[in-house]
Simulated assay, not measured.
Amino acid sequence: MDGDADRGTALDSTTVGRRVRRRTGLSRADVLSAALALVDADGVEALSMRRLGKSLGRDPMRLYRHAPSKDDLIDGVVEFALAELPVPAMPESGDWEEALRRAAHAFRALALAHPHVVPLMVTRPLATPLAMRPLGTLRPLEALLDLFVEAGFDGCGALHAYRLYVGFLYGHVLNELQERVHDPDERDHLLRLGLHRLPAREFPWLRALAGELAAYDGERELDEGLDIILEGLRSRTTQCE
């Protein structure tokens, strides 16, 4: 009897051990988080189901239940990254300009945290009709339209204001991400930026502006651009014709 009890205890322990070792279920969020990490590390070109499966320790074929295609996976990565953005809303003070400034700086922070995702944020919508885009990519649009309407714009004017504002933000972050320093420890601006390699006769302005390029301050440039954009929006409530 005691032997049977011992064997039963051993079997129970083995069963529990197997259950403990059994892998937990994988969610779409788990897959997209791992995919975003791959894109952050090596760019979107490095993203594949094979590499993704390896990083998650899973059979790549099992991942297709969470992302049926490469396009769906990329769209999911964009949506997952955008979920980090706080939703812009009218503050109690009613200062809609300050709300737009905060949203702009939050978007810049997101872009600097995920530079390889920025081109996807800008270009992916061009390949997909508005109503077919992932809902997460449309929520910032809806929130900004709501903010502009609360600020006094009519529906059509809010849409024009949104396009101007977001177009500026996209252009700014793309420009800022291009300001790559070739050799951070080099003090000579031409050498630091690698501009010494450019033929002087063909690129006189780029070489002449090396000091200004080397002193680029993305946050300051963002605020200066916002001053211009918001002053223009403040001067009128754009109406539909």
Rank of each mutant, 00 (worst) to 15 (best):
V31Y: 03
V31A: 10
S33H: 15
A34D: 06
A35I: 04
L36P: 02
L36T: 09
A37S: 12
A37G: 07
L38F: 05
A41F: 11
A41E: 11
A41R: 10
D42F: 06
E45W: 07
E45M: 12
A46C: 06
A46S: 04
A46V: 04
L47G: 00
S48G: 02
M49T: 07
R50S: 09
R50C: 01
L52Q: 03
K54R: 11
S55F: 03
R58Y: 15
M61I: 15
M61W: 11
L63V: 09
L63A: 03
Y64W: 08
H66V: 06
H66F: 13
A67T: 06
K70V: 00
K70D: 01
K70P: 00
D72P: 03
G76C: 06
E79Q: 13
F80V: 06
F80Y: 07
L82Y: 01
A83Y: 14
A83M: 12
E84D: 14
L85V: 12
L85N: 01
P88C: 10
A89G: 15
A89V: 15
M90W: 14
E92A: 10
E92R: 09
E92V: 11
G94H: 08
D95L: 09
L100D: 04
R101P: 00
R101S: 00
A103D: 07
F107P: 00
R108I: 05
A109M: 14
A109S: 13
L112I: 03
P115E: 03
P115N: 06
V117M: 05
L120W: 14
L120N: 07
V122H: 05
T123D: 12
R124K: 08
L126V: 08
T128P: 02
P129E: 05
P129H: 05
P129C: 03
L130P: 00
A131T: 02
A131K: 01
M132H: 02
L135Q: 14
L135H: 14
G136T: 13
T137H: 09
L138S: 02
L141Y: 11
E142Y: 12
A143I: 08
D146E: 12
V149K: 15
A151C: 09
G152V: 09
D154R: 06
G155M: 14
C156A: 15
L159P: 00
L159R: 03
H160W: 15
H160S: 15
Y162Q: 10
R163K: 12
R163L: 14
L164S: 10
Y165G: 04
Y165H: 08
F168S: 07
Y170K: 07
Y170S: 07
Y170L: 14
